[in-house]
Design a protein around this nucleic acid. Sequence first.
DNA 1: CAGTGAGCGAGCTTCCGCTTGACTT
Length: 779
Amino acid sequence: MQENLVIVESPAKAKTIEKFLGKGYTVTSCMGHIRDLEKKDFGIDLEKNYQPKYVVTPDKKKIVAELKKMAKGAEMVWLASDEDREGEAIAWHLKEVLKLDPKNTKRIVFHEITKEAIQRAIENPRSIDDNLVNAQQARRVLDRIVGFEVSPVLWKKVKPALSAGRVQSVAVRLIVEREREIINFKSETWYRVTGTFLAKDEIGNPAELKAELNKRFSTKKEAYAFLDKCQSAEFSVADVVKKPAKRSPAPPFTTSTLQQEASRKLNFSVAQTMSVAQRLYESGKITYMRTDSVNLSGLAINTTKEKIIELHGENYVKIRKYSSKSKGAQEAHEAIRPTYMSNETVSGSAQEQRLYELIWKRTMASQMADAKLEKTNVTISVSTAPEVFTVSGEVIIFDGFLKVYMESTDDENGNPPAGQEIIPPIKARDVLRMAFITATQRFSQRPPRYTEASLVKKLEELGIGRPSTYAPTITTIQNRNYVVKEDRPGVEREFDVVLLKNQKISEKTKTEITGTEKSKLFPTDIGMVVNDFLMENFEQIMDYNFTASVEKEFDDIADGELVWNEMIDKFYQPFHVQVEDVLKHSERSKGERILGNDPKTGKQVSVKIGRYGPVAQLGEATSEDNDEKPQFSSLRAGQHLETITLEEVLDLFKLPRDLGEYENKKVTVSIGRFGPYVRHDNKFVSLEKEDDPFTVGLERAVELIEAKREKDRKAVIRVFDEEPDLKILNGRWGPYISFKKKNYKIPKKLKAEELSLEDCKKIISEAPEPKTKRARKKK
DNA sequence: CAGTGAGCGAGCTTCCGCTTGACTT
């Protein structure tokens, strides 16, 4: 029987703390929240002042039972969950569920996991902060209200099984709005002029100096005129200005910055980063990975300092204290850092090693000296024109933190950082020989699409979501099919280059690939329709500042200045009226766009979201005119409601095409839910990638039909005359039994060819329940 | 998986934040 029971949130933390506390203390973990609002129904009693109806979460039942047993046998229970709003609520739920006696219960918090900090915490217990707990209840209840009142509106007005929420709906809005900016973007073009001049380096060898004109020309004509003036010009150095500059390291990692850097430097998805970090955390290699704090413990700073001195010397050290400035930061933990700075590398998978190395370097750099630079700006004048050429160079005088780590930026357009030219030694009034001058056509860049990580960055800036939810949120909006992560190929673009060389002006047209996207987030049609519906009807919760303003109220509740259910009531009353009103009055939202009329028949051409996804429609379903139903056709992959043109839709209605007859039965080709297919004798055969349904001929179709038949023949391992519904087939994952439209796995130890009918029936009757939809969705 | 799109109705879906294993394919 233990004297003291300490309950923390995570088992890895429990293990460490137990070592520090030693005899007389048992440390265990509750794995986060143990109770939540009832999932069925609303979970909030609207008649009783929004009283929450809490139930123990199903997957926590076992843990709660164990905790109960342990608490009973303990003289004192120490609730040591995190210090923030959620942590305080966890402590309160533990107290309630475990029916802890206040006499034998203490609430403690610590800011870092060291022996001293924990002992200090034990010596300074407090009671549970009810105000903070109420702030959490308000947060929880508000999120339930928004999610469970708005989602059903979407089921009725848009499509079943959709969802809306304070966080996810705003995340989708960001992506939809960015996409619209891109669709509406009009690229401007101009001419950028660069001159290449000849100089000499330190030892007298020829060196080039490339400088850019301080003026862009908006037309080719102007560019020509300038190059013409340059033909007879003298180029001289007007000015050389040197000034010192410095660069400082980035702060240690938080969840959000770790996700961004792992995405930029290691190409990890945010979910991948979190699962690799989790493994590093569980094996004791890094501190906790869900944090919004940039703070390092005193111990960590000291060991980092020692390591910097050991590897680079005293002059590379600069101790820095970082503080968080992100909205809503709750600072229950430290920044993400190695547990032991002395370990430069760790064992584990390649991914674990790479992520660890990144964290180690970032932590090191955060305590290192600034890099000192010398910037040189050179101005070159043109005797025949008022414009000047400029170039700036940068020389590192002292590398400082750059020795170990440089943060990457989200330069979506792949532009090289400015000012990296090496400047040869030149001085004012030097006359330079011009080698050549080019005027290159350039285009303004459309706004970049979000990556998973840049979306997290944006959400964090807006104070929306928490470290523990960034990755799940991104997964949710993809699971709901509001957003897809995709690669898209770029397009070729032509641009003109005008060249002045050897007193001659010539012109060339070059091509480049532009707009290539890799692992970017695109809104789907349904994502756009849902977003527009929510923007139209629930402006308040879609507001980028909604979270920030309710957070302020949660803070007031935590400070005891606001009563939580009064705050909720003030929100709920008008909100619920709004919900009822939308249910009653708003139209079903199908994202319909009318594109024009079919020139042949004059029928209206439109697109909308149908029961099975985006669909094009030819003709109208009017009640008076019943003789003709409209024609429908699903949109093809890559086509979108927002951008599809009349011509593209008309192409869709060229299908199905009649190819002729084979074995006296019609052969047609069309595009279905699973892509282009050939239909013959009520059987369907998918077209191959290289086949175009608009041009494919009968001969090729027959070839595909025959190939499919051959494949089907091979797929049958055994049939039974007495039970024609039962077949043993060969599928993608090996042999299986097919019976009345259901498939059954054959146990590995049995040979498929030798199974009797009885064996098969036995397998069928013993087959486990087919998986529910929920279990499958989880993947 | 299933190659649809009319209409009805039963039964279901859904939130955010704390945590870690079970799950296979």
